[in-house]
């Protein structure tokens, strides 16, 4: 009996040709794009002391300011929850229609996706500016902006989750004579529910941060105070706002981790 010969790996595999090629390509692209945009690393180093000055000022948070921002912070959280909920609710039917494993009609699916791409293309700042103009300064404009922004993002995350589900239960439900809606309710939703919740909370977290920026445009919440403190060079107040927002984001993160564990 002769021992079988060990097959030789092709030289492309042996010298990791494609991995090296990709790394080189990416580095070259990075260098080229920094040259094209005029990003200058030297300038970054030269001006870094300005940044440290700012940091030093911010390292003495004016804790007394906390009592002022509690109310707007609360409003920010309300805005984020409301906006995310509205957006996610609308995202569910759209994501079901955009999933290639549920909708065979390519034309319909691509139309829905085109619409979702369009929604995602609109920058949230532009939306906020429009809705502040329409509804006036205040949290209504903020909620609507966040709802549309969440809708675009969550729809995409949702339909990508739907496309990864096990199709077996769908086949089984089809074989017992279930209607389309029943198939979705019995075979699709149970498979995606916990990821839906997880993405919902992720979006909520993003929205808390986004709404601080929206406040700049008068869309309500903590952002109004952030802008005011920066305009007044009152960096110790800015620090309090940032830290308070951090706490909120951390709490949401904690809740979302906990829920994911429970739901899994």
């Amino acid at each position: 009996m002769s021992t079988p010969e060990i097959p030789q790996r092709p030289w492309r595999q042996r010298y990791h040709v494609s991995a090296i090629a990709w790394t080189v390509t990416i580095v070259v692209l990075l260098i080229l794009s920094s040259m094209a945009t005029g990003a200058n690393f030297g300038m970054f180093l030269a001006n870094i002391n300005q940044f440290t000055v700012l940091l030093v000022q911010m390292s003495h948070p004016a804790w007394a300011y906390l009592s002022v921002i509690i109310q707007p912070l609360y409003e920010t959280i309300q805005m984020a929850i409301l906006g995310t909920t509205i957006g996610a609710a609308f995202a569910i039917p759209f994501s079901l229609l955009a999933a290639s494993n549920l909708v065979g009609n390519q034309v319909l699916r691509n139309l829905i996706r085109l619409f979702l791409d369009l929604v995602r293309t609109l920058p949230d700042l532009l939306l906020a500016a429009i809705f502040v103009a329409v509804f006036g300064i205040g949290s209504t404009a903020g909620v609507i902006t966040l709802a549309i922004f969440s809708f675009g993002m969550v729809s995409k995350l949702f339909y990508e989750v739907i496309e990864t589900i096990d199709m077996g239960p769908l086949e089984a439900m089809k074989s017992v004579g279930a209607s389309k809606v029943t198939i979705i309710w019995y075979a699709v939703l149970p498979q995606i529910l916990n990821q839906f919740v997880s993405y919902f909370l992720y979006t909520l977290e993003i929205n808390v941060r986004a709404s601080t920026v929206l406040g700049y445009l008068g869309a309500g919440g903590i952002g109004v105070y952030l802008q005011r403190s920066l305009d007044q060079f009152n960096y110790s107040a800015t620090a309090v706002i940032i830290l308070a927002t951090l706490v909120v984001v951390m709490v949401i993160d904690g809740v979302s981790n906990h829920l994911r564990r429970v739901l899994l």
Binding site: D166, S179, V181
Partner: peptide
């Protein structure tokens, strides 16, 4: 097998009936 793995055995067994029920009652 094609069961819904996250659902209870009871729900999986009952899902065999959905062809006999109107959609709203299934939901």
């Amino acid at each position: 097998f094609n069961l819904v793995k996250r659902a209870t055995v009871e729900k999986n067994v009952l899902s065999g009936l959905v062809g006999y029920y109107p959609t709203w009652r299934c939901v």
